[in-house]
Design a protein around this nucleic acid. Sequence first.
DNA 1: CTTAGGATCGCCT
DNA 2: GGCGATCCTAAGC
Length: 188
Amino acid sequence: MTEQQLAGVDWYADAHQVARQLIGVTLLVNGVGGRIVETEAYDRDDPASHSFAGPTQRNFAMFGPPARAYVYLSHGIHWCLNFVCREPGHGAGVLIRALEPTAGIESMMARRGTDDLRKLCSGPGKLAQALGVTRAMNGAALDAPPFVLQAPPAGVDVVAGPRIGISKAVDMPWRFGLAGSCYLSRRF
DNA sequence: CTTAGGATCGCCT
DNA sequence: GGCGATCCTAAGC
C-alpha cells in the first residue's frame, strides 16, 4: 500500500478535503483507538493555521511529507495530533479532534481516569491522552507502527461547521464530523 | 531577555 | 457560561 492510498485518503488533496475523507477512518496507536468522528482542516494560507507564518521549530513537521503526524503541545498542557497533507513542503494539516472508542478501551480509561466512554476521546487533548500520543511521534509516518489507519465503509454521512477554539478565520466551515455521533467534542 | 498569547480541559457557579 | 492551570512558542526589543 502506498502512502497516497493509505486508508483510502488522497493525502495530496486540500486540507479540507482530507479532513472530510478522514471521517470514519479507524485510527489505532499501539492498538488503541477507534473511528475518527471529528476533524478540522488547517491549510497554509489560513490565518488560524500554525503554518501560516512559515516553518518554525514547532511546526516543521507540517512542512514535511504528507501522511505523517504533527504533534504539538497546547496551552502548555495538552498534546494534540494532526495528520500532514498536501505535497511535501506545503504546510497543511488536519487536527484529529475526536473519535469513537473501539479498541483498547481499558487502556484509554486508565490513561484518562474515567469510565465514561464519551469522555475518552471527545476533544483533541483528550484523544491524544487516551491514545498515548506524545512529542515522540511528531513527524512519524502514519503507515507504520505505532500507527494503524483503516479505510471506512462507503457512504459516511459527514457534516461541516465552523472550527472551535480559534480567534482568526472563525467563520470558515472547516470542521467536519460524523453526522449524529455522540462522541463529538461539541454538537454541530 | 521579555512578553503576549494560545487549534484545551475541567471545575466552578 | 466563565475562568484558572501551566508552559511552550515566536516575535519584538
